[in-house]
Simulated assay, not measured.
Amino acid sequence: MTRVTLLAGGVGGAKMAEGLAALPDVTLTVIGNIADDDEFHGLWVSPDIDTLTYSLAGLIDRSQGWGVADEGHRALEVLFRLGQDCWMSLGDRDFGLHIWRTMRRGRGDRPSLIAQDAARALGVGPRIVLPTDDRVQTRVRADAGWLSFQEYFVREKCAPEIRELRFDGIDSARPTPEALAAITGADLLVLAPSNPLVSIAPILGINGITEAFRAAKAPKLAVSPFIAGKVVKGPADRMMAALGMRADALGVAERYAGLIDLLVIDAQDADLRDPITALGMRAECRPILMRDQADKQRLAGELLELAQVTA
C-alpha cells in the first residue's frame, strides 16, 4: 500500500481526494484547510472540512460542489423570518452536523477528534486530519475594509478587489501530531489543485508544517488549479492577479518553488514547462480537468506513476 498524504481545500481538493481514495493500493490521509471556518447562528461551521467529508462519504451536492445532496432549507427559512441574516446557505441536515460539532467543541473536545468522529460516522474511509486544533481564520482586505473569508466568498460573491490577505491566529497555532505524522510517514505528498493562497497557504503556514513537508523524504507533487490561465472553480485567478502574482500555472509554480519536486499542469499550458522547470522542479502535462469520477481516478493514478519516476 502507498501512503499518500494530500493537502487540500475547496472543491478541487475534495475531487482530488475522491480520486486518490478510489485507488485500490492507496492509504489516503487528507490534511484539510480550517482557515475558512466561522460561526453562524451560534454554530461553528467548517466549510472545507465538511466538503471533504461529504464528498468522501458520497453525500455531496454534485451540482454545486458543496453541501448535502437533496437538501432542504426549512431551518434557514425560520431564521430568516426571525430577522436573522441568512446569506450563508446552510441546509437542514448540514445544520445537524454543525450543531453536533458546536456541542462537542463546547465540551472541550479536540477539533481533530471531532472531525475524525464525523468522518467515521458518515462512512468516510480515508483519514481527515486537521493541520491545527487552534483557531486560524482567513481575512481579506478590500477597499471597504477587512472581511472574513466567508463574507468575501459567499456574501460578496468574490466581487471586491483584494488588497491584502492575512490569517488571524496563524503565528501562535500549533500543528497537530496527526498532521505531522501524516507528512513524515507518507510515501507520497500531494498539494491538491486548490487555491494556493487561501486553501494551501493556511495549512503550510502552521508552525512546523512547511518544515516537516520540506524534510520529508517522500516525492512531493502538486496539481495546478489553472488551465490556460483560468481556474475551474473559485477566485484563485482573481486573487492572485489582484495581489500582483501571475494568475496561471507558472504563478502556482512560483508559489511552490523550493517545496515540490514536480508540478502537474494541463496540456493547454505546455508552453509553461520550460519556465516552470527553471524554478527547480519538473513539469508534466496531463489532462487535469476532473469532470467525473473516472477523471478523478485517472488523474490520481497518473500522480502515483509520476511519483515513481520522481522518486
Rank of each mutant, 00 (worst) to 15 (best):
L90H: 03
H41F: 15
C158M: 12
L97T: 15
G169I: 02
W87T: 05
Q150W: 11
T132V: 07
F167Q: 11
I162F: 10
R101C: 13
R166D: 07
R155S: 15
E77A: 14
R107M: 14
A115M: 05
G106R: 08
L113I: 01
T138P: 04
F153G: 04
W44T: 12
R107H: 12
F149D: 05
E39G: 06
D50Y: 11
R174E: 13
L165K: 09
H41W: 13
V154S: 13
P160R: 07
V78N: 03
D70S: 11
R166E: 03
D117W: 07
H98R: 07
E156V: 02
I162A: 08
P126F: 01
V154N: 11
F80I: 01
F167V: 09
C158F: 15
D50W: 10
R105F: 06
R62N: 08
L147D: 01
I114E: 06
F167E: 10
W146Q: 08
E151Q: 15
D117Y: 00
I31Q: 01
W66N: 07
A35P: 10
G125M: 10
R101F: 14
R101N: 13
G32A: 13
T53N: 09
P160L: 14
L122V: 02
A119S: 13
I170H: 10
R105A: 10
A69P: 02
R110F: 02
W87Q: 09
H41C: 14
D134S: 03
R93N: 12
L97Q: 12
L122H: 02
H41N: 08
D85P: 00
P126I: 03
A159Y: 03
D168C: 07
R127F: 05
E156M: 10
R135K: 05
D171R: 11
L59H: 02
V68Q: 08
I114K: 05
A115W: 00
S46K: 05
G106V: 00
N33I: 13
P47I: 12
R135F: 03
E161Q: 15
G169H: 04
P160S: 08
W146H: 07
I60G: 03
R101Y: 13
V136G: 08
D61S: 01
C86K: 04
P131Y: 08
T132Y: 05
E161A: 12
S112C: 01
F153S: 04
V140K: 02
R139G: 06
E77D: 12
R81Y: 00
M103F: 07
Q64N: 01
P126M: 00
A115F: 02
L97V: 15
E156W: 11
V68G: 05
R105T: 10
R127Q: 13
E71C: 09
D50M: 13
A35I: 08
R101M: 14
